[in-house]
Write a protein that binds this DNA or RNA. Structure first.
Length: 214
DNA sequence: GACCGGATTGGC
DNA sequence: CCAATCCGGTCC
């Protein structure tokens, strides 16, 4: 039985990043880079809460060529290069000029898995690589071919979009501290990292479906 | 113009 | 544990 999906409407993103980060769990992130369709169910996110959040690239109203897309209305991609070799993909939240965003930290691969393997590890697919194919922000961008070319794109575009597959987490999202933001002072302790519970039945179910994508 | 460091990853 | 690798941001 195939699951039919529809792109999230731009209104879906008109909420603060903490609320959006939780709402995105279980949604499908889809790209069609180079003609190859790849998709994953979002399982881990982090919220970055704009000008007052020391961990946020827009803290204090910083606005530069790199983070300009954070100021777009909710429902756009904010993609940046990190450590000179990886990309991180964010979903903008809230309204235009409110620079809040949600970092996608992990997805469960569900479509185009062979493509992801070839992009991630030159074709070699050990049990280890399968297990860690898309379980980090840099890894999932590599697997889905998300890079600066997709920065500022609407998330109902042809090349990149997020859709609702009717998958609903059974329990509440697990909340914890955000990772690798030691420079953020007190804000390190904000519980703005959200994870789909490891034992949530949604994981098994989602992996077993076939998806009809828009 | 120089210098610094990162919302990461994988290999040693 | 640490190197890779390269902009962008900051401060001369």
């Amino acid at each position: 039985m195939a699951v039919s999906c529809e792109k999230l409407h731009m209104d879906f993103y008109k909420r603060d990043a903490v609320a959006l980060a939780q709402a995105l769990l279980g949604k499908l992130l889809v790209t069609k880079a180079g003609g190859a369709l790849t998709a994953g169910v979002i399982t881990e996110t982090e919220a970055y809460m704009g000008v007052t959040d020391r961990a946020c690239h827009a803290f204090g109203g910083r606005r530069t060529s790199r983070n300009e897309s954070m100021y777009l209305p909710g429902g756009h991609a904010y993609v940046y290069l990190i450590y000179g070799m990886y990309h991180c993909m964010n979903v903008t939240a809230a309204e235009k000029d409110i620079p809040e965003a949600v970092l996608v930290r992990g997805v469960l691969p569900v479509c185009g898995i062979e493509t992801m393997i070839s992009r991630r590890c030159m074709g070699k697919a050990s049990a280890h690589t399968m297990r860690h194919l898309t379980d980090g922000p840099g890894k999932l961008c590599r697997a889905l071919s998300v890079d600066r070319a997709m920065d500022a794109m609407r998330l109902d575009s042809e090349l990149i979009y997020i859709c609702d597959a009717g998958l609903r987490p059974t329990g509440e999202a697990l909340a914890s501290e955000r990772i690798n933001i030691d420079y953020a002072g007190e804000d390190v302790h904000k519980l703005w990292r959200f994870t789909l519970a490891p034992d949530d039945p949604l994981r098994r179910y989602a992996a077993a479906q076939t998806y009809v994508l828009p």
